[in-house]
Design a protein around this nucleic acid. Structure first.
Lengths: 302, 302
DNA sequence: TTGAGCGCTGCTTAAAATGCAGCGTTCATC
DNA sequence: GATGAACGCTGCATTTTAAGCAGCGCTCAA
């Protein structure tokens, strides 16, 4: 879209915080970009950026402009998507931000099922902690975010919600593996490998642990679920994961999941989030619809 | 806005139904406009207009584009308005479509009061029948519409509503002027000057008349309230107007208004309408707010 | 059958955006 | 306190883009 470049350029300057950096990203010279910004500011009769020694930052007017521009760019994306739908191409990109726990099993299944119907739809997955995920949603970087136990502000709408319990994961030969459910206090008797503090499951654990005055023997702490699983397998530690990311019995390894006793757990939700007021591409809207449905269904089956 | 011209151009072509006509309105040559359209179509990979012998008409994709474009143009208008507000200029334009009944008294008062606070805000008034008024609202030609007894479809939101009775207006020396209220049947004994069928008040009268099987002595029929008032004054006819457009005693003439008996009247509303999903300029939003308030207050006082 | 009105295109000309090189400034670093 | 990297900005030459002009072929009402 030729007439959208100006908007994209300004948004990029805002993102980069520097005209030169933005120009590099956009593959134009900084002088060209600089003049585009200046022309726009002159036309509007008001500066959009404050010039600082190490770059630029948005003025109030600039923030308003960027917000409008982002919205319009998103609308145009959606328009193009509808055009393609009209032409029967059924293409599209769905961009998702989610926490690690979901990526491996739940989302992979959902995406595969969706692509069965619409093979030309591509997916972009961004795996992060929930704060970054919601920020990406706010910045129009992703179409939807799937977050666990997050504080969701206004501006973001929760399309579906799914209560999630925490599961303890351990090796099949771990003493606690004999039980159907475990209590958190029991886990304290063994070495544990905890998710780090950016992750929702850890925040949940900390909450419970401090209430029950539990002290874990923390063998390790990591932001990576692969790492934690590795520690479980090779170090015989206990780790924790939300149930949707922890199938009761993993066929590919000797790791098992054991539900934690209900009495120990506060309520925590897995939330499917969209940006309020934003219309999505056909592909993204369809996928969200199915995902929401899958979450409802999964909720019914305990 | 330099980068908005393309959108404006396409919208204008859609409005005009012809590239040449649109080009004339836009003060450019038809070849230039033609090529802009073609370039855009090529870029989108889909035609926006169907070429017909006597001009062009929108394709489905074209309709979608125009709708998005209009929305974005309106957003940018709003953005500029907010900029000016930020700079303390407090300027702006409020564009209104309303029926004649309201223009003379009610709206004039409201506008004058508003301009007392914000003298730099200009008003554009479009006086028409209610269908045209709602169409203008839908086409982003006006910011708000004030219509009486209209069928309001989805896509248009009613911000405030005010039940309105009909009043009979007549010369002070008319026999019926002696009464505080009149019945519609009584009016049938005298010559009447009726609003024409485009006007909401006429539709209301027709409704009642047909139910009560009344036959009026129709002395005249007109779409102009000035004309009707003239006939009342000079021909001693009775005419009708909604109460908000008919002050009980007009100091500038010998015309008086007498309320019609409640038993004769079906419910009819004066509605303040906005386009759903559209954000308005600061001035327009403020004016609407006050107008809505005024309508609530007016409703309280019977 | 004719002519007015339409969309479209080749060519020329005017305008706008871009790249290049370089200026003055700020600020972390040594 | 000197230094250099990073930044925004500007004059000028160049390229790219858009606009205007004239004219073609087409359709359809008169």
């Amino acid at each position: 879209m030729r007439h959208l470049t100006l908007l994209q350029h300004v948004v990029e300057v805002a993102r980069s915080g520097s005209i030169r950096k933005a120009a590099e990203r956009l593959n134009i010279t900084s002088s060209a970009l600089n003049r585009r910004v200046q022309d726009l500011e002159e036309e509007l009769g008001t500066p959009l950026f404050e010039r600082r020694a190490r770059g630029v930052s948005l003025t109030t007017a600039g923030e308003m402009f960027v917000s409008t521009a982002q919205h319009h760019l998103s609308e145009m994306d959606r328009f193009r998507s509808q055009i393609e739908e009209l032409r029967g191409l059924r293409r599209g990109v769905v961009r998702i931000a989610c926490s690690q726990a979901l990526a491996q099993d739940f989302l992979a299944t959902q995406i595969a099922a969706f692509q069965n119907d619409r093979p030309k739809v591509a997916f972009e997955l961004k795996v992060t902690d929930h704060e970054t995920a919601l920020a990406a949603l706010r910045d129009y970087e992703v179409d939807l975010a799937l977050v666990f136990h997050a504080v969701i502000g206004t501006g973001i709408a929760v399309t579906a919600r799914m209560p999630q319990r925490l599961a303890a994961i351990m090796r099949a030969d771990h003493p606690l593996a004999a039980q159907r459910t475990v209590r958190l206090a029991e886990c304290a008797s063994y070495p544990v490998a905890l998710p780090d503090r950016t992750l929702g499951s850890r925040q949940l654990i900390d909450q419970v642990a401090s209430r029950q005055e539990l002290r874990f023997q923390v063998a390790a702490e990591s932001g990576s679920f692969e790492m934690l699983r590795g520690l479980v397998m090779r170090g015989n530690a206990i780790s924790f994961q939300i149930e949707i990311g922890a199938p009761p019995r993993d066929v590919h390894s000797d790791v098992v999941a054991r539900q934690i006793d209900d009495r120990d757990l506060p309520q925590a939700d897995l939330s499917l989030c969209q940006l309020r007021g934003r219309s999505l591409s056909v592909a993204a809207a369809l996928f969200i619809e199915r995902l929401a449905q899958a979450m409802q269904v999964a909720r019914k089956v305990p």
